[in-house]
Amino acid sequence: MTSLKETRIDRRFAALKKEGRAALVCFITAGDPDLETSSAILNGLPKAGADIIELGMPFSDPMADGPAIQASSLRALKAGHTMRKTLDMVRAFRKTDADTPIVLMGYYNPIYVYPNETFLDDAAAAGVDGLIVVDVPPEADDELCLPAIGRGLNFIRLATPTTDDKRLKTVLKNTSGFLYYVSITGITGAGSANPEDVQLQVARLKRATTLPVAVGFGVKTPEQARAIGETADGVVVGSALVRAIETSLTQDGRATGNTAGAVLSLVEGLSAALRTS
């Protein structure tokens, strides 16, 4: 495969390994509930304790997501969010933070119509570090993954409980940055996996790769984050943060003075849990 130089994601995981703790990976949807509030949350995430940020690219049909992230996507789109605005958010973030990795996460179609090559150029120029595109499997690596690697972007893949050892080889082939383990068969924000199962699965994945393994889907509380952080290199929290945005809104869906604070204080609690284990 095309070899990548050391990326911001690699450096961050290496640093955390020295610290001896797992990365807190925080997901929010770009533009949710509006551009200004979403930018305030994004820019506040590193100080609150996020080690890596997954920034969701809103899509009208997020078919691997549960109700919380579906609603966040629709809020962002209703507020007029666009892919260019997502990239603008990253560009602005990079002016004050040169170290915290940002991974764009979402579905293929908004990238495909951008189109691919232009999107990858613009994303790399804006300061994006990696991509997670839920509906582009390794079988289609030639159209997005390999061109992304060619621009120095990590293309991060998901492994799931249905990924057997044979399939894992295919999944790992062009994966870099980290491997994202989806701890349940299901959609985001659904039930939580049992920590012993996660431990076994992470051990299995780590036998197959030297990449850091981050675990997500169904992680909601500091206690769960701490338990998973004991075996994984990273803990991904998404629906819980997005839900905190939702519950802070007015009845007609507008941000309140409390919206950014609600998310960031939740992140502080999760971060503290990972630092005291």
Binding site: M63, E139, A140, L158, A159, T160, T162
Partner: peptide, 20 residues
Amino acid sequence: ERGHFGLYGGRFVAETLMPL
């Protein structure tokens, strides 16, 4: 063999579903 009709078709699904 990859499910393509020219440009179209393919298998654009989440990894959970790929083995199935």
